[in-house]
Amino acid sequence: MAELTEELSRVKAEEPGVPSRDVRVHPNPEPSPASRTGTPTVIVDDLHIIYRVYGAATEAEKGNAANALLRLLKRQGRPQMKEVHAVRGVSFVAHHGDAIGIIGRNGSGKSTLLRAIAGLLPPHSGAVYTDGQPSLLGVNAALMRELTGERNIVLGCYAMGMNPTQVREKFDDIVDFSGIGEFVQFPMSTYSSGMGARLRFAIASAKAHDVLLIDEALATGDREFKRKSQQRIKQMRDEAGTVFLVAHNLDVIEETCNRVIWLHKGKIKMDGDPETVLAAYNKV
């Protein structure tokens, strides 16, 4: 396993770099990374996140109108509301220069934790302190399927906070990187799933970030695009001060992270260097 990973990483390292994107779009300049290595950039203090889920009916309470009325009469609350305690008291400190992998089973709260660090999900209790604005890599939610690729590129860039000049600068890069060619003039609903994923990734990765949060399954598409996008992620990792990476693919974690946090049912089960944590994770 380890040998295979090493080989993979060597293959990736040998690949030609993608066109450089020197323009930093982040508004506030910061000191060079080297001078600040080791200072805390993200502090998570006893974080609890509770989602409210509506309409999650159990066996006993089927969702018909009569039952709804009965429940309303009996409990006088909003009966179909369920609370999901997704993150239950997580605390850790991330430092400048860290690349932290977050692993765990489906539903263990990985993505939720990431969103909370990004400041997108309000904590139920506890707090997240950050240096600068952490950004989640991903722009899907802002795009509209009925619109052409061109319009979506502009919309996505604005949604990420670019200004018109930056959008004009990045536009051709995004089209080139996505490799969708003249399809950029067609609505995204006509794209194949691979083409759509490529364009979304190309838009999302067009911006540089201080604290970068990467959710899994970003590198999609065909084999060639997969390699291209992994290269791009690597480059973004190098540019960013602190990186959080959520992935099921442990090879990627082992290859890129210097620290791994293992989440289980919303709590940190283990936090340490990749070898130790991954070894323990693979055992269960």
Partner: peptide, 19 residues
């Protein structure tokens, strides 16, 4: 039980509870 040993091995910070 296994997870408990894993915690012990890692010797990491106390987890799941506020420090």
């Amino acid at each position: 039980p296994e997870s408990a040993t894993a915690d012990a091995q890692a010797g990491g910070p106390s987890v799941g509870t506020p420090t």
